[in-house]
């Protein structure tokens, strides 16, 4: 199996990475770049724990090959807070008690971030629909939905 050398911008940093063809974006982030905030819950596109933002849109990083990301820009949970300052969504998740074990949380935050980028004032239904691919076994979801609403009410959220 051959390796491919790719250029990929991750959280604003240009990275040059050697990846085997069968390496998913998820594995590249975790194993090549030690960005372990992105989680692996199924490797099958079902759980959403691996959700990252690829060229502005959320994807299941277990369903994307790393080689496909040559020239792309990726944002992970590690890129959400800036200089130790939490993003409004992160603060909202804390305020609403929307995190328990935390394993789904990075993926949830990526999906929610992308939602607020495309829809600054989502309805309850729109939030639930946007998060349907992020399984959470702990919280029962309602606090996550409330957290997204809280963040959406803050003007700086979308600008961030």
């Amino acid at each position: 199996m051959s390796n491919h050398k790719i250029n990929v911008t991750v959280n604003g940093e240009v990275e040059v990475v050697e990846v085997p063809a069968n390496m998913t974006l998820l594995r590249m982030l975790r194993e090549k770049l030690a960005l372990t905030g992105t989680k692996n819950g199924c490797s099958a596109g079902e759980c959403g724990a691996c959700t990252v933002i690829l060229n502005g849109e959320p994807v299941n990083s277990c369903m994307v090959l790393a080689v496909e990301c040559d020239g792309a820009s990726v944002m992970t949970i590690e890129g959400l807070s800036k200089d130790g300052q939490l993003h409004a969504l992160q603060q909202a998740v804390i305020d609403q008690g929307a995190v328990q074990c935390g394993f789904c949380t990075p993926g949830v935050l990526m999906s929610a971030y992308a939602l607020l980028q495309r829809n600054a004032k989502p309805t309850d239904e729109e939030i639930r629909e946007a998060l349907v691919g992020n399984l959470c076994r702990c919280t029962g979801y309602n606090r996550i939905v409330e957290a997204v609403k809280q963040a959406a009410d803050q003007p700086e959220t979308v600008a961030a």
């Binding site: 596109g45 959403g48 959700t51 690829l54 849109e57 959320p58 994807v59 299941n60 369903m63 994307v64 999906s111 992308a114 939602l115 629909e129 946007a130 349907v132 691919g133 992020n134």
Partner: peptide, 9 residues
């Protein structure tokens, strides 16, 4: 179909 993030692919 599936979820928002899956539909991006």
């Amino acid at each position: 179909v599936a979820s928002y993030q899956l539909r991006n692919r």
